[in-house]
Computed example of a mutant assay.
Amino acid sequence: MTTAEANGHRSLAEHSYAVLRDRLIMLDIRPGDPVNEAAIAEELGVGRTPVREALKRLEAEHLVVSYPRRGTFATGVDITDLAEIAEVRIHLEPVAARRAARNTAAEVRSGAEHLLERLDSLGADSTRRELLAADLDIHRFVYRASGSAHLADVLVRLDNLATRIWSLVLDRLPHLAGHVHEHEDLLRAIAAGDEEAAARIAAEHVRSFEQRVRESL
């Protein structure tokens, strides 16, 4: 395999992973649903090998589970995991936010401004998918902007699991748009380089998220 072929294969596997990951997170693929490798490959227009590699990554991230001779299935969503996930996030989210605010790279400032403009375009009439996608993108932006690949990797995985729990109770949460718009102050703090405000707001957001989910149960 040439270098170009290898890069193309990685791109197909990455694309397959990103599509499946977000479908699992937003519960387009419901907990317990089978994940048909052949059908997904055909839908995405890729070979089965990139899909198989994507599923291996997703299994490592506890989003799917494979059983010999039975196939691959979306993992269940356990509400009792919420407390443990929140306990870790309450410590790590402020670290990521503080580091992001400290990051003086021009793309961090412009990225925060772009996301603020995106939030400004979202309202109560925005779709569930649009709001969830914006929430995920904001969190992933902050994690990348932290400049720590290790920290980002841990937080992306935790946020993915938290979003699955959120998606499960979303119909009982009437103020989804308001929750997503809470990120505006965090993005402004990062754009302004205000480390302490960014860390404080990130911690408050985790607490608010956990409280709202618990109130919906």
Rank of each mutant, 00 (worst) to 15 (best):
E5K: 12
A6N: 11
N7G: 01
G8H: 03
H9V: 11
H9R: 15
H9L: 13
H9Q: 12
A13F: 00
H15E: 04
S16H: 01
A18P: 04
R21N: 03
D22G: 03
I25H: 05
I25A: 07
D28Q: 11
G32Q: 04
P34W: 06
P34K: 07
N36Y: 03
N36Q: 11
E37V: 12
E37N: 13
I40Q: 02
V46Y: 10
T49K: 13
P50R: 02
A54H: 01
A54V: 02
L58N: 04
E59W: 00
V65W: 01
P68W: 06
G71T: 01
D78G: 05
I79L: 13
T80Y: 09
T80N: 12
T80S: 14
D81M: 07
A83N: 10
I85V: 08
A86C: 11
A86M: 11
A86N: 06
I90L: 13
H91V: 11
L92R: 10
L92T: 05
L92P: 08
E93T: 12
E93P: 09
P94H: 04
A96C: 07
A97M: 06
R102G: 11
N103H: 02
T104P: 08
T104M: 13
A105V: 11
A106D: 14
A106P: 14
S110E: 15
G111E: 09
A112L: 06
E113W: 09
L115W: 02
L116H: 06
R118T: 05
D120H: 12
S121C: 08
S121Y: 11
G123A: 05
A124R: 13
S126M: 02
T127H: 00
T127W: 03
L131R: 00
L132T: 05
A133M: 00
A134S: 15
A134V: 10
A134P: 07
L136R: 05
R144Q: 11
R144V: 05
